[in-house]
Design a protein around this nucleic acid. Structure first.
Lengths: 98, 98
DNA sequence: TTCGTAGTTCGCAAAATTACGAACATTAGT
DNA sequence: ACTAATGTTCGTAATTTTGCGAACTACGAA
């Protein structure tokens, strides 16, 4: 059924789905406003278990929206700028109506 | 856990979640480009059962993104413009980074 | 080597999503 | 009253999502 739709729709739906949870959207918006953050800081701020946070971060990574780099012993997360631009472009195309 | 997040995030996540499926995004983009459509036309175009389509339309309605009006014996769907504007505004705020 | 820190993975359970066909409701026309 | 057209709802099944705690990995410091 996926094959029925064109790439743009599949890609955009994947982005939207990844952002379709308050925790993930919160993280994404944070990174959209402050260049980077550490998983530990998120864990302190958010009312969820570390393991749950880890899963949400993995989903954002799998969707291509964020990326992490190791700064032992922490992990530094920031936006995946390439896909950020792509998502921005796609969503702006979706909301064209005046 | 929902209570932890502010309204903007909850609202935006609800919109994103509703658009996080290819079928629903397809419908939304169609309505964003052509003012209205009928459920029957969608049913012919899309590779899903009528009952499944009906559920997707209900979700878009529940998320506040579309609205339907009866034109017996059909139902005419169009965007919920108020929430379209809201979603447009919120998403543009999310993607601020140049 | 042992300990503490940071984070992931595993195993599990509950709930939500996705999808279908059959049955049902509504309305208009014959 | 019967039929056709258009959708919705119901019941069901398979899959995915969400969330947790316990166990594990990796690494640097004492």
């Amino acid at each position: 059924m996926e094959q029925f739709f064109n790439d743009k729709i599949i890609t955009a739906a994947r982005f939207a789905k990844a952002l379709g949870h308050p925790v993930r959207l919160h993280i994404f918006m944070l990174l959209s406003s402050q260049s980077h953050c550490y998983s530990g800081d998120l864990s302190e701020d958010l009312p969820i278990a570390k393991s749950t946070l880890s899963q949400h971060l993995k989903e954002l990574k799998n969707a291509g929206l964020i990326q992490g780099s190791i700064e032992t012993p922490k992990i530094r997360y920031c936006l995946n700028y390439e896909n950020y631009e792509l998502a921005k472009k796609i969503f702006s195309e979706i909301f064209i109506k005046n």
